[in-house]
């Protein structure tokens, strides 16, 4: 559960994620993820749906979604890449957008696009179990199971590693046939559980 103290300012949260509040609060659904007409069209086209509400008022507001773990990320101008389904709440100062991820999204079963958050402020991510934050530095590449990937920040290059061979076809796959390799410098958020993914069975 996430508690947000509001003092006349606003936060954006996943629609319907408010569980309790005290003080005076106003809830307003933002069409198109609060990204204007262009964002609305982009989201409709890319299938990266995100229904967002704006919460404004005085007091404390509590957010939660299906008892999943919440991880707070402090952004200082950099860009956070996260799946729309894993994003719970962002501060007013953060802008959200959509970006192309290519094959990675397809292997996660989340579509070809992902959500970006950039600006300065706090963002709240959801994960199944507390996320482990792993650093990627030059010369220290990290490989992640697509089903456990939650989000990443920094200048990272993603690359698909495929261990799918003829053995997979005869049912002798390694179960880790599709992996994501991150190179560059930044951090990656990984959850201790795996979503069912397209590549997960290989």
């Amino acid at each position: 559960m996430l508690a947000v103290e509001l003092n006349g300012d606003a936060v954006r949260a996943k629609n319907g994620s408010m569980v309790a509040y005290d003080g005076r609060m106003g809830f307003k659904r933002l069409t198109g993820g609060g990204e204007g007409l262009r964002g609305m069209v982009t989201r409709r086209v890319t299938g990266e749906h995100m229904t967002v509400m704006e919460v404004k008022g005085q007091g404390t507001c509590y957010f939660a979604d299906r008892a999943s773990n919440i991880n707070l990320v402090r952004l200082g101008g950099e860009k956070l890449y996260v799946e729309a389904s894993n994003l719970l709440c962002t501060e007013e100062g953060l802008r959200t957008g959509t970006t192309f991820t290519g094959l990675r999204g397809a292997a996660e079963g989340n579509g070809l696009f992902t959500t970006t958050v950039h600006g300065t402020g706090w963002a709240a991510l959801m994960s199944d179990g507390p996320a482990v934050i792993l650093r990627v530095a030059p010369g220290l590449p990290l490989t992640v199971d697509p089903g456990a990937y939650v989000a990443h920040t920094g200048e990272l290059k993603q690359q698909f590693v495929s261990g799918v061979t003829w053995r997979t076809a005869i049912g002798e796959g390694s179960g880790e046939g599709v992996q994501l390799r991150f190179e560059g410098s930044g951090t990656v958020y990984v959850q201790p559980s795996e979503r069912t993914t397209l590549g997960g069975q290989l």
């Binding site: 482990v132 792993l134 990290l142 490989t143 199971d145 002798e172 796959g173 880790e176 990656v188």
Partner: peptide, 19 residues
């Protein structure tokens, strides 16, 4: 057991037992 790896650093290969 298959599918329990969530991430790794370094140079690691995963092979089925029939390899």
């Amino acid at each position: 057991q298959k599918g329990k790896m969530i991430a790794y650093y370094g140079d690691i290969r995963f092979d089925g037992l029939g390899h």
